[in-house]
């Protein structure tokens, strides 16, 4: 009896905890509301299954626990019941999978108008790069990384001259504009993770990964690293500021381009050039 009640209580407590938990996802700040919806749907389906299984079990324990003289039924199988249950499970699974795949299709399809933003991870900080007036990012290479070219940008690439480089500072984005985030690392795996945007993707040294999203809410959001990257993994922080178009442009005006930055360090750069290759 006590066992049956405790089993049932475990299920009830889980549901109550779920309903009243103050720990819930952060308010959405991107277009990925569909992801939240899929999670909610999944919660409903799986929650129902969990409660049903545990309640059934608790009932069995209550109803059929051993008493003097009880004899168990002899019932090796029931093909019909098993098939029905399998089909039912299949339907439940499909109900979760189908919307998931539809949303995933959106997730991997970057809209044509998305502006590119580059995020570069390194132990243990974030750097950002925005395309300049030409709207294109220049090439980069980890081999070019040096004290005065920390992002390893290619100085000979004309596309890169006007790229805006943001070092040790926050990234700003304009609200409502789809962004394709290009992710790059120069040392180990990192993962550009802003909980409010829902989307995330690992960055891999040696290649460029991406995802896209549209910021839908102004505010300042924390950036964390979500892929173990060594001792100071937990301290690898930054911020993303989503703001209105006008403020965004005002901020953009104040940022400096790669050419400006490297111009200041001409002397150092010359020394670097003879040093490499």
């Amino acid at each position: 009896m006590a066992v049956a009640i405790i089993l049932l209580l475990v299920a009830i407590a889980s549901v109550v905890f779920h309903l009243f938990s103050p720990w819930w996802w952060t308010p959405l700040a991107s277009n990925w509301g569909y992801i939240d919806d899929t999670i909610t749907l999944t919660f409903w389906i799986t929650g129902a299954v969990f409660v049903a299984v545990v309640a059934f079990m608790a009932y069995c324990v209550f109803r059929f626990r051993h008493k003097e003289g009880r004899q168990a039924d002899y019932n090796p199988e029931n093909k019909r019941l098993e098939w029905w249950l399998s089909v039912g499970t299949g339907i439940g699974v499909a109900a979760m999978l189908a919307p998931g795949l539809v949303v995933w299709h959106q997730f991997v399809t970057v809209p044509a108008g998305a502006t590119e933003v580059e995020v570069m991870g390194q132990q243990w900080q974030w750097s950002y790069r925005l395309p300049g007036k030409d709207g294109r990012l220049g090439t980069s290479d980890a081999r070019l990384v040096s004290a005065d070219n920390p992002m390893g940008l290619n100085p000979d690439d004309p596309n890169g001259k006007d790229d805006i480089v943001i070092q040790n500072d926050d990234l700003h984005l304009a609200i409502g504009k789809p962004v394709k985030v290009l992710l790059r690392s120069i040392d180990v795996l990192h993962d550009f993770y802003v909980p409010e945007f829902r989307a995330k993707m690992d960055m891999i040294p040696g290649s460029v990964t991406y995802y896209w999203f549209t910021p839908t809410r102004t505010g300042t959001f924390e950036v964390l690293c979500a892929e173990l990257c060594g001792a100071a993994h937990a301290q690898m922080r930054s911020k993303v500021v989503v703001e209105e178009e006008k403020e965004y442009h005002a901020w953009l005006e104040k940022q400096r381009t790669f050419a400006e930055l490297s111009g200041q360090r001409n002397v150092a750069k010359a020394a670097y050039k003879t040093g490499s290759e």
Partner: peptide
Amino acid sequence: FIITFVNGGLTGLFLGNVVVDVPLSDT
């Protein structure tokens, strides 16, 4: 075992469903 396995198995349906995994992975 049944309770914990069912619980853990069902959350597996979250993580196995690719788009749901995106916000939850590495958390």
